[in-house]
């Protein structure tokens, strides 16, 4: 199992603040690909942040690759995340002061992954971005930026890739291309992939589709209340 979550509870700080996550059980097998969808504010991004170790849950087990990350110290978590988790944000994925090539290189350096420059160029070539290697993010379109972010996430060969609404800033055509690329690269690297999206076209590209309120009891309750 890449992910194993049991009895996860999470609420924002402050007395009386509502519970944001309440997950009894969630598991994800290696190399599997799923799409999660749900209402805004239902805790999907918080869920990703907990899985990636940026947020600590109030209680519960969050096991990634057999390691309970809630027990890790901050620097151990940083190291764990750098090696095992690739992350793609909704937008502004790239470091502004770095060009496309360097944005990929820095991720490999942080993860202490062995690489050669040729390898980065080959990966850029495979997505038709080699000629943009020296360009800074502001010189690239959003679609191009997302493609660089995908290469950055997959090149360190992580066990898990998390993509939080990676196509929300793109047109439908580019969105489909990005998702295809993401699925292909994740398969090549044997990485498990979880994508969060609101777009039905994107969700339908995945065999396994999970409604977030089905795994998050807190989200279910909030949706019930709102209804």
């Amino acid at each position: 199992m890449v992910i194993k979550i049991e009895n996860l509870k999470m609420k924002f700080p402050g007395a009386g603040s509502p519970e944001i996550l309440n997950i009894n059980r969630f598991e994800l097998a290696a190399s599997s690909q799923i799409a999660i969808f749900g209402k805004s504010g239902s805790g999907k991004t918080t869920f990703f942040n907990v899985i990636s170790g940026v947020l600590s849950p109030a209680s519960g087990l969050v096991s990634i690759l057999g390691t309970d990350i809630t027990k890790l110290k901050e620097h151990e978590l940083d190291n764990f995340r750098s090696k095992n988790i690739g992350y793609i944000f909704q937008n502004l994925n790239l470091l502004q002061g770095y060009n496309a090539f360097e944005n990929i290189e820095i991720s490999l350096l942080v993860a202490k992954t062995k690489y050669c420059k040729k390898e980065i160029y080959e990966n850029l070539e495979s997505i038709g971005m080699a000629q943009h290697a020296k360009k800074r993010p502001h010189e690239l379109s959003l679609g191009q930026q997302q493609r660089i972010a995908i290469i950055r996430a997959v090149m360190k060969k992580p066990a898990l890739i998390l993509a939080d609404e990676p196509t929300s800033s793109l047109d439908p055509h580019n969105s489909a291309l990005i998702i295809e690329l993401l699925k292909k690269e994740a398969r090549l690297m044997n990485s498990a992939l979880i994508i969060v999206s609101h777009e039905s076209d994107i969700i339908s590209m995945f065999e396994r589709q999970v409604k977030f309120c089905d795994i998050n009891k807190a989200s279910y309750e909030s949706e019930e209340q709102s209804e």
Binding site: S52, V54, E74, H75, D78, N79, F80, R81, S82, K83, Y87, L92, N93, L94, L95, Q96, G97, I106, S107, V110, A111
Partner: peptide, 17 residues
Amino acid sequence: EKKRDIALIRFLGAPRK
């Protein structure tokens, strides 16, 4: 000015130190 870049580098796994 670089807070987002710093946060991003931290997210990639760079330690605070």
